[in-house]
Design a protein around this nucleic acid. Structure first.
Lengths: 150, 150
DNA sequence: TTAGGTGCAAACGATTTGCTACATT
DNA sequence: AATGTAGCAAATCGTTTGCACCTAA
C-alpha cells in the first residue's frame, strides 16, 4: 500500500526494459505529482505545455499503456470521460456530485474488511473500487455551484 | 435495503402521478425481473421484442428517467457503455475482468463499516459504489474465454 | 384537453485505429 | 539497425438532442 513517486516508478520501468520517451515521462510525472484526478484532456493540456505539443491520441495510448503496466489507475465515471490516478495503490474516493471533484480517502477499516468478505464468493479478486458519492465541504456551503471545477 | 419488485414499483410510480407508458413498463419489468446487469443496447433488444419495436433513444431517455426517480441504478464501467441494475438498493458488485459478467454480492459487514468510515471526512455521503474486479468461477476454470458473454 | 412521452435522424464527444515517420535501446 | 512509439486524421461507437407527432391520465 505504498504509493510510488515519479522517480521510483521510472526506475522500476527502466529496470523492466520499458522504453521511456519524453512523452511517457511527462505524462507519468504529471500524474504522479498531482493529487487531482485529471481526465485525458486535462493530461493532454498540461503535458502539451511541458513538451510544446503532443497528440491527444498519444496521450490516450500512453495512459492505457501505463494503466496496463499497473503504475497508474483508470476510473470511469458516468459523465462520459475517464479519469486517471497517479496513485496505483488500492484506495477509496470521494466524488462530489455537484462540482465533480474527486478526493482520496484513507480507509484502513475497509481495507481489512473487503478481502475477508469475498472469501465465500468463489470469485478471485484482483482489485476493488470503492467510491462515496455526495457533497464535498465546499459544496455543502455553496449550493448550486457549476460543474466545472477540478 | 429491501429490493422492490416490478408490481410494487409500478404502484409506487402510479401513486406519484408518473405516466406509465407501455415502453416504460416493459423496460422497468425487464430490469426488475433479470438479475443480469444489461447495457442500454441489451435492454433495447429485449424490450423491442416485447413491444414489437422501440427507439433506442426512448430506451436511453427512459433509463435516465427511471434512474433519476431512484427505481433503478446506473453503473458505468471502463468498457465504454453503461449498465443498468433493476436493484435500486445499495449493494456491491463482482466484475469479471475476463468475461465481463457482473454479479451481485451481499456484503453486510461492509454496509456497516462504510458510513462510519466517513464521519471524519466532512463529506456528506449520499450513496456509495463498491466493486470487486477479478475472475469469476467459470473464468478461473477456463482461461482466455472471449469477452462476449453476459 | 394537455403535459409529457415517443420516434427518428442528425449531432456530439470521447476514444480508438491505420498508417507513416521517428527515436530509444 | 530494429522494434516499439508518436503523430495525425479519419473512423467508431455509445449517447444525446431537436422537433413533429402521439397518448396516458
Amino acid at each position: 500500500m505504498q504509493r510510488l513517486g515519479f522517480e521510483e516508478t521510472i526506475a522500476e520501468l527502466r529496470a523492466n526494459g520499458v522504453r521511456l520517451t519524453p512523452q511517457r515521462q511527462w505524462i507519468l510525472r504529471y500524474l504522479k505529482e498531482t493529487h487531482s484526478h485529471p481526465t485525458a484532456e486535462q493530461v493532454h493540456h498540461e503535458v502539451s505545455k511541458a513538451l510544446g505539443g503532443i497528440s491527444l491520441a498519444t496521450v490516450y495510448n500512453t495512459l492505457h499503456t501505463l494503466t496496463k503496466m499497473g503504475v497508474i489507475r483508470e476510473l470511469s465515471y458516468g459523465d462520459g470521460s475517464s479519469r486517471f490516478d497517479g496513485n496505483e495503490t488500492e484506495h477509496a474516493h470521494l466524488v462530489c456530485e455537484q462540482c465533480g471533484i474527486v478526493l482520496d480517502v484513507d480507509s484502513p477499516e475497509v481495507e481489512h474488511i473487503l478481502p475477508k468478505d469475498l472469501e465465500r464468493t468463489g470469485f478471485k479478486v484482483r482489485s476493488y473500487r470503492l467510491e462515496y458519492y455526495g457533497l464535498c465541504e465546499d459544496c455543502q456551503a455553496t449550493p448550486r455551484k457549476t460543474f466545472a471545477n477540478n
